[in-house]
Structure formats: structure tokens, C-alpha cells
Computed example of a mutant assay.
Amino acid sequence: MNDLSTQSISASLPVQGKACVLMFVKAPYPGKVKTRLGKTIGNERAAELYTYFAQDVLVTLCQLPVIPLIFFAPDDARLQIAEWLKGQQYYPQQGKALGDRMSHAFNRCFELGYEQALIVGSDSPDLPLNYLQTALEQLAAGQVVLGPSEDGGYYALGFTAENYCPQVFQGIEWSTEKVRSQTLRILEHHARPIYELPTWYDIDTLNELQRFYQQNQQGQQSQSMAYLSRHQHDIFERCRT
């Protein structure tokens, strides 16, 4: 296992083969997405933010030399998803548990003929592009790639068709701080080569949203930041009173 610091990310390895990035999204129904954040800022506001989070993640993915595939839920929301995240390829998530849905998505990608697949969520709108570039480079080098998140889960997971390990989706305590450690234990048990990316954070709470807003004041403004700039008083000031 190789821990990677932010400063040590390089672009020395070429991206080879036929690769794709799987982006998992939910239809942005109030009360169905960003529910922890919704308890603080309201479900309507949280759902609106989620639409921009996902759009910003997709903008980043479209800068990679791979094909993004949108895996959506629920499975009757295709038209809404296609209107929201335009111009992509769309596949319904299948399975009840998160692990079942991710396992099916990887299987689907490999059935389509892709040699490398990287799955990412839609909770980190400022996820650095170079993290994902490094992930693809390490996939091309035959590594299993895992991007750990600060809450104990992961923001990215990647396999090649040859090193795919579906066991990582079984027996995991999803939505807990144990997800990363349990996943690594399974990968090590099955003797998979592991490359860990730098740790990043999801936005699930008001404090994390405030952190995102403060860290992204400079530079090109994303859709998420534009929304927060328009509504910062209602979101940050009123929610603290």
C-alpha cells in the first residue's frame, strides 16, 4: 500500500487502455439527498446545492481523458437526470444496498469492454483534478486505487478488469467510519496492489459547507460557489442563530 501526499502527486505514468469514470448520483429530490445537511439548512436548499455539487464534479470529470458514465437512482429518473447532467451516458443503479449498486456498476463497465473503471460520488465538488489524474495513471499501472475521505469512507475507488475484487462490496458497514479500513482489509486479504490517494472531504454538514466556501473564495468560481455566494446570508448566518 502506498500513501500519497498531496505534494508528491506526479503525472509520470501514462493513462493507457480503455478507461471510464463512473459517477454515482441520485435524483435531487428534497429529503432524499444531502439529508444531514438538510436538517440544518432545509431540505429544499440542500437539494438545490446537491444539483450544483454534481454539476461541478461532472465538469471536473469531463477534463479527464476518459468517458464519464452516469449511474443514477431511482431507476425511473432517467429523463430528469439527462436534463440535469446533459450530454452523457446514463445507466440506472441496480440493487438495494450501496455495495450491490457499486458492484453492479463495475460489472456493467467491464461488460461494456472498459479495461479500467474509477467510481466517484457527487459529495466533493472541489475534488482536485490532479487526484483523479493520478488515480487513472495508477489504474493504468495495474493498481487498485482508493481515495480515502476524512469521515472514514472513500471518495473514489478504481479497478482494472484484471484486479477487480467484488468482495469489497460485501460485509461493509456502509455510512460509518469503518468503510475505508474494512475495504483495505479485504483488498489486502485478496492480495490486491493498493494505491491510496490523498485524503479529501465530503460535504455533509454545515461546518463542511462553510469550509468549502472559505477554501474556494479565490480562483474560478464554480456553480456551487456561485449559489453559496448568492445565498450565504440565509445559509451561514441564519442557520447559526
Rank of each mutant, 00 (worst) to 15 (best):
L4I: 05
Q7N: 13
S10V: 03
L13Q: 13
P14Y: 12
P14A: 15
K18N: 08
A19Q: 02
V25Y: 05
A27C: 07
A27P: 01
Y29L: 02
G31N: 01
K32A: 07
V33D: 06
T35W: 14
T35A: 06
R36M: 08
G38S: 07
G42C: 12
A46C: 11
A47E: 00
V57F: 00
L61A: 06
V66H: 06
L69G: 02
L69P: 01
L69I: 04
I70S: 12
F71D: 02
D75K: 15
A77M: 08
R78G: 05
Q80K: 04
I81P: 00
A82E: 13
W84L: 05
Q88P: 06
Y90C: 09
Y90E: 04
Q93H: 07
Q93N: 00
Q94P: 11
G99V: 02
R101C: 13
A105S: 12
E111R: 05
G113K: 04
A117F: 08
I119S: 11
I119W: 06
L132T: 05
Q133C: 05
T134C: 14
A135V: 04
L136I: 00
E137T: 07
L139R: 00
A140P: 04
A141T: 03
G142C: 07
Q143F: 08
Q143L: 02
Q143D: 06
V144H: 01
V145L: 04
G147W: 04
S149C: 11
D151T: 09
G152I: 14
G153N: 04
G153D: 03
Y154N: 11
A156F: 01
A156T: 00
G158E: 00
F159Y: 01
E162P: 07
N163R: 03
C165H: 12
G171H: 03
S175W: 12
E177Q: 08
K178N: 02
K178G: 01
R180G: 04
S181H: 07
T183C: 06
R185E: 05
L187D: 01
H189V: 05
H189C: 07
H190D: 05
P193T: 09
D202Y: 14
D202H: 15
D202L: 12
T205G: 04
L206E: 08
N207T: 06
Y213T: 08
G219K: 15
Q220K: 13
Q220H: 12
Q221T: 10
Q221D: 13
S222C: 05
Y227G: 11
L228W: 14
S229R: 12
R230P: 09
R230D: 01
H231N: 04
H233G: 10
F236S: 10
R238C: 11
C239D: 09
